[in-house]
Design a protein around this nucleic acid. Structure first.
Lengths: 349, 349
DNA sequence: AAAATAAATGCAAACGTTTGCATTGTTTAA
DNA sequence: TTAAACAATGCAAACGTTTGCATTTATTTT
């Protein structure tokens, strides 16, 4: 139909008024008469006018888009954080542009540059597993763009952040395992260069120390936080080592891989070896036996992160004081860590 | 550090040359001498220059962002499609801005308007469950923005699209069930106003007709495609009806709800009632017994969708011929539809 | 009825790039 | 040596809005 998008000028020409009046009318400026507003609205509609946000943003020197960088979108945890973020940003009039770093440092740097170039109003980021330095974050700060980190953060930078209390989560889980009577507790997780796995290890360690269980004897596996990595590692491990009482996998996917390896080896969970996970992925409650794990309240994390950003966006002070919000995770005890043997067949009512 | 973002002008001033030269230098224009290019690059770096994409886009009348509207980001299927889309769009120099309609028509309309206002280069969309009319899509077309629909599409509009062959998937699944000897096959799915469930019903019907099994006697449940909806429905259903041979849930979540209801009632899967799903969600292979379902090749769908869009973006013809790509799904036979009884305990090797 | 006030609109510059065309300086051909 | 050709850069307008200030028109006050 329309060859070119209609502009404010087209409306002005049509109505024999000036572009400024049209602009003000469209923005419901109080000094424009009801009559012209109505006319403007009418012809805007007739001409199929769609405001040009990019022109508007350029002129105003700001926009309403915030950028969000996550390692992967298809992790339950992150997609829920995103949902939480949108639930507070959208009502506040902001749109979200989502970028995936795919756990690559290089990609993360590129994402940052794109967002800066697009002059987003703010940036939310959870660091990739590879990210060890923070030059790119410094760029954001230099560009005066409000920044909030979440989940996988870098504490050296003095930036607002919201994190899970991974130390506490791992501590609670380990205590639970110890109370069940397990002593030989194998730890498994992603690279401890990442804050989350580092802290999940610390919590584990603290619990062991409290219970005076020597940590030196424990087996640990640090590798990619995936089902197959755990599966392959455990296949070999089970051939060469004596069985631990329980495997504490600090990721549900690794827990799943562990369970599969145990099953392949003809072992029963939790009778022969117990297993615990972390994150409460949707499948955790669906598998049999049901997986004991840690709930992270990911949506709440998203909301908190977004609120922290909004604070910075709304307060006009140049140097807002950085805040840190810590979300307490919750231990969810299900079947894979039950001390007493239980039937693995379907429950009869 | 820098109070304001440096602009091309700042670089020009510093070097006592003109902004146009700087612009050309930054874009590696052949007519600019190596010497000035080097100087420009150097001071750009010193001044911490970040190009202003929004100004650039405004001037050029185009950008490198494409918008994507999905019902929800935290569905395995969609997040995988997104991954597929990015894997072809990013190398081509495009960024993705993702919007969620949350299955609401109103939200979808707003998303469309935002994307048009932001003058995205193209739009990819999968319709919300509520979406029954396509005025908003017409707006996109009127705005001359290339559009590709995927998965949940509207065939009346003459637009490029890539869909799963849901009819074939449901047909194959139903045939599989019939071959296993099941005759009383209950169908379950989301609202059939949505193309996908409509087609999944059609395939089911065709298979029954071919096998001369009267469809009139079958029970059907059409409701929200969620675990709880299926669970609640089945709880009541099981109290008042004779058991079907198998429940064909055209969504894995509904299959899961069905299984839980059956288990609550003390029934065994697949011994007492078999169950089939659709989508091959990650948990399908993880639950016990493992769920028979349909693989949809979601990432491939994303790649195909993105390629269709790229075609339109690159070809300068105003009216590209709309293309339709149909992706064949694959039947994945696992345990929940095994005719012979099998132990539900862990497999001993 | 003139002056003062208020209400509505117009003018023009600006946001940071890009780009066709003009200009300058430099080299080559005749 | 001069004209022609080329290489490198400058000039200025444009993209579609927004906005401070000036101007016009309508309304009220004296």
């Amino acid at each position: 139909m329309s060859k070119k998008q209609a502009t404010i000028q087209d409306i002005a020409r049509e109505l024999k008024i000036t572009a400024s009046t049209v602009s003000r009318a469209l923005n419901d400026h109080p000094k424009i008469s009801k009559k012209t507003k109505d006319k403007v609205w009418k012809t805007a509609h007739e001409l199929n006018y769609q405001p040009n946000t990019v022109a508007s943003n350029l002129r105003k020197g700001k926009g309403n888009t915030v950028g969000m960088i996550v390692p992967r979108i298809n992790r339950h945890f992150f997609s829920n954080v995103i949902t939480g973020v949108e639930s507070v940003l959208n009502p506040a009039g902001y749109n979200l542009i989502i970028c995936q770093s795919e756990e690559k440092y290089q990609k993360e740097v590129e994402n940052v540059e794109t967002l800066i170039s697009n002059r987003v109003s703010g940036i939310l980021i959870s660091l990739s597993i590879e990210t060890l330095n923070t030059k790119h974050l410094q760029k954001i700060i230099n560009s005066q763009i409000p920044l909030v980190m979440f989940d996988r953060t870098e504490s050296k930078l003095n930036i607002s952040q919201v994190v899970n209390d991974d130390e506490a989560g791992a501590y609670e889980m380990t205590c639970h395992l110890l109370e069940q009577g397990y002593r030989d507790i194998m730890w498994m997780g992603g690279p401890r260069t990442s804050s989350i796995y580092h802290n999940r290890y610390l919590g584990y360690k603290r619990a062991l120390e409290e219970y005076k269980v020597p940590i030196e004897k424990m087996h640990c596996f640090e590798g990619p936080s995936t089902l197959v990595a755990a599966l392959e590692y455990m296949r070999i491990f089970l051939k060469n080592n004596k069985l631990p009482d329980v495997v504490f996998a600090t990721s549900d996917y690794m827990a799943m891989g562990t369970i599969q390896a145990l099953q392949e080896a003809g072992l029963q969970v939790p009778k022969d070896v117990a297993v615990a996970g972390y994150s409460n992925e949707p499948f955790a409650a669906l598998i049999d036996p049901k997986l004991t794990t840690i709930e992270q309240f990911s949506e709440e994390m998203g909301r908190a992160t977004a609120r922290l950003l909004l604070d910075q966006l709304l307060s006009e002070t140049d140097e807002p004081v950085p805040r840190k919000i810590i979300i307490k995770p919750k231990l969810i005890i299900r079947e894979t860590t039950r001390k007493r043997k239980k039937s693995n067949t379907f429950i009869k009512k």
